[in-house]
Design a binder for these strands. Structure first.
Lengths: 193, 193
DNA sequence: CTGTATAGGGTACAGTTGTACCAATTCTTT
DNA sequence: AAAGAATTGGTACAACTGTACCCTATACAG
């Protein structure tokens, strides 16, 4: 009777192994065999829980979105005030620690694959970013009534995505990226003149 | 005697074929054979001009940076005034037409590879973005003396990178991205209060 | 007790990859 | 004219990929 949930656990374990491999050696290195080895199981077991590699890739992407959402929820708990909320959420979009670094590397790799791979493109890839953007827009709307919430929130999210890519690529440090982010938030939330 | 330059032309042709394949089918699809077919030459010829795939990948990346630089130079010619210059340069960072769409897809794919591939990481990947950032900072410095040029230019460049990724992923249209960009530039270049 | 489904392991296979090798042709130089 | 270097082609090969197949155990329904 617990078979169903047990099965789901196994699938999660394997998907997490894929994410680990992809984060350390690149998404292209996440072969069936590499994932099986990382998960400490046989190749056949991976095949048993995922009929095809496409299914595994798709499930791992779901799992990644889930993990990123969990991180945001955990970070946001106990934070109050529009400025603090927005800063917390946007900071999570920056790869400041190994875990989020892995997340953003794998997520962006998936996104690049999705541009040319119809199967991945069908995924609800953009649900999380869209939700973030709406949330930030909402906070701006009744935290800074003078501004255009949608345009400003889109700009902020895009900036963080770009800053995150810059950090990943080694263009700037996570601290520098945070400084750029804080500067923009200071401007947005400065006392009305 | 023209052999040397002839050889260089051939290498460019092959590298351009790689960029075309990568832009249409993804960087992972740019195999030796696919590149040879796209270039209309035999597999051995590709091997002849590039001893190893790593060399081909590296040369194609150089070539991509060259093409992107050429596009910026061409776009900027005939444009005057800080606001117009900055807008022109940043707009080029957005995938508004097929060519720049291809450029940004392949460039970002390379960047993701470089995170886990030491050979690619050694490349002067960030020279172009850094140069752009410096140029924009310079324009802001004596176009908008009140602002912090480096922080604002970093924010603008990062925002455009993020917007570009969003356009590639299908999150928003190129027009919407341009609207977000223009809104930020309007703010930066509004009459001093 | 018997059969049937689930979980697991090992191996085989066809296709693709980067690379290496061998042959032929063309061009330059002596 | 001859020799040799550069250029092009075809094919071979070892490694790796995703997938398929065959063989056990163990749990549970009849």
């Amino acid at each position: 009777m617990a078979r169903g949930t047990d099965r789901e656990w196994r699938r999660r374990d394997i998907a997490d192994a894929l994410l680990r491999v992809a984060g350390e050696r690149g998404l292209h290195a996440a072969t069936m065999r590499a994932v099986a080895a990382e998960a400490g199981v046989s190749l056949h077991l991976v095949q048993h829980y995922f009929d095809t590699k496409e299914q595994l890739m798709s499930f791992a992407l779901q799992r990644l979105a889930e993990l990123m959402r969990d991180r945001v929820v955990q970070r946001v708990s106990g934070v109050a005030g529009p400025r603090e909320l927005v800063e917390t959420i946007l900071a999570e979009a920056l790869p400041t620690d190994p875990a989020s670094r892995l997340h953003h590397l794998v997520y962006t790799s998936y996104a690049m694959l999705a541009v040319t791979d119809p199967a991945l493109a069908a995924h609800p890839f953009l649900a999380a970013p869209d939700a973030m953007e709406s949330f930030v827009a909402e906070q701006l709307a009744h935290g800074r009534p003078g501004t255009d919430p949608r345009l400003e929130s889109a700009a902020l999210l895009a900036m963080c995505a770009g800053l995150g890519a810059g950090v990943l690529a080694g263009q700037r440090s996570a601290e520098d990226a945070m400084a750029v982010l804080r500067h923009q938030l200071d401007r947005l939330f400065e006392v009305t003149h």
